[in-house]
Computed example of a mutant assay.
Amino acid sequence: MNKRVRAYALSIIGLILLSYLFFSFFRSNPNVYTDSKATGLDSEFNSLVWSDEFDGEGAINQEKWFHQTQLPPGGSWWGGIIQHYTDREANSYLKDDYLNLVAKKETFDDQGEIKQYTAARLNSKFAFTYGRIEIRAKLPTGTGTWPAIWMLNTNIDEDGAYWDNQGLGTTKWPSCGEIDILEHWGKNQDYVSSALHNASSYGDQVKNVGGQKIDDASAKFHDYSFEWSEEKMIFSVDGVEHFRYQPTIKNADTWPYDSDYYLILNIAIEPGIDPDFVESSMVVDYIRIYQ
């Protein structure tokens, strides 16, 4: 090997090694993570205040997350969904430094109700007002699956929810306010949606909604971003905005978004679930909150 070829080969090896070192550094130091699409360098919110990188194996971090399992009155979750939420590792666990939320087809008896599907519903033990959330995730697949990453006000009156258990539940839905960062229906594969529920727009007739089609939502990781200030809310995927909420009139009906909200991660199962469905997971690389 002549000197020129040897020098070229060494430079290529050096670049590969340097790239690996940079990736390892930024992966373990989210405060200095510099992907402009994932961190919004043009945002006013760039100080990391809370995160979960989901490092490790086994059970999720109980200091950061609460399993919400208590059924609403009547024995089924709102919206006609048909699963039990459990606190078992079978439905939520860490593996290879990722969070796995797993929806399964299985007979499960809990709280006097027998259901044929299980999943997990996590409440964050951290709540905040105004900031930016960055989430890197890939979504479950299958007609009838309904994964969501969303937020509720800590004042929601909902028995069994973490913040209601802390004595903060004073306000019924939808007046408390709801922020849907992302929803995905398996019957409309690869379309992701964001919405806002409040006293002026809620339920099946919600008008504050937007979304976009993305490539391989269940096969590839995508970056889901939500930015929330006193003036507006912006929802994006991979740096592409698909919904902005900035009402001209802000009052208790249109803007209950001026106090602390917490995160919820869950997979619901709709009655029209594919009969051949067995299980599918929402896999989350990280969640980072900036203010």
Rank of each mutant, 00 (worst) to 15 (best):
V206H: 02
D276C: 04
S229Y: 01
W228V: 05
D238S: 07
Q291M: 10
I267V: 15
Q205S: 15
E241S: 14
D274H: 10
Y245C: 08
D253G: 15
D276W: 00
P247K: 10
K207D: 14
R288W: 00
F221D: 06
Q291V: 05
L265A: 10
D223L: 04
P256Q: 04
T254P: 04
I273H: 04
N266G: 07
D274E: 11
D274Y: 07
V240H: 06
S259Q: 14
S259W: 00
V209S: 14
K213G: 04
F226W: 04
D204M: 12
D274S: 12
E227W: 00
F243Y: 15
F221I: 06
Y257M: 06
D216T: 03
S225D: 02
D216I: 01
E230Q: 13
S281V: 05
S281E: 14
L263E: 10
P247F: 01
S225V: 03
I249P: 02
E230N: 11
Y262P: 05
G239Y: 00
D204Q: 13
A219P: 01
D274L: 12
S280L: 08
E230S: 14
A268Q: 14
E230M: 04
E227I: 07
I273Q: 10
Y261D: 01
G239F: 00
P256E: 03
P271D: 10
V209R: 15
I249K: 13
G272T: 09
K207M: 13
S281C: 06
I234E: 10
R288E: 02
T248P: 01
S218A: 11
V283R: 04
E231F: 01
K213Y: 11
K207F: 02
S281P: 03
K213F: 05
V240P: 01
N266A: 07
Y245D: 09
P247D: 09
K220Y: 05
E230L: 03
I264M: 08
W255T: 09
S229V: 04
Y290T: 07
I214Y: 04
K207R: 14
P271T: 10
D204E: 14
I249E: 14
D204C: 08
I249A: 13
F243N: 08
M233R: 07
D260V: 09
M233A: 12
F235C: 09
Y286Q: 06
Q212W: 00
D276P: 01
F243K: 05
D223V: 13
K213D: 13
T254R: 09
Q246P: 03
G210R: 00
Q205A: 15
G211V: 05
I289N: 05
P271S: 12
V240L: 07
E227D: 08
E279Y: 03
K220A: 13
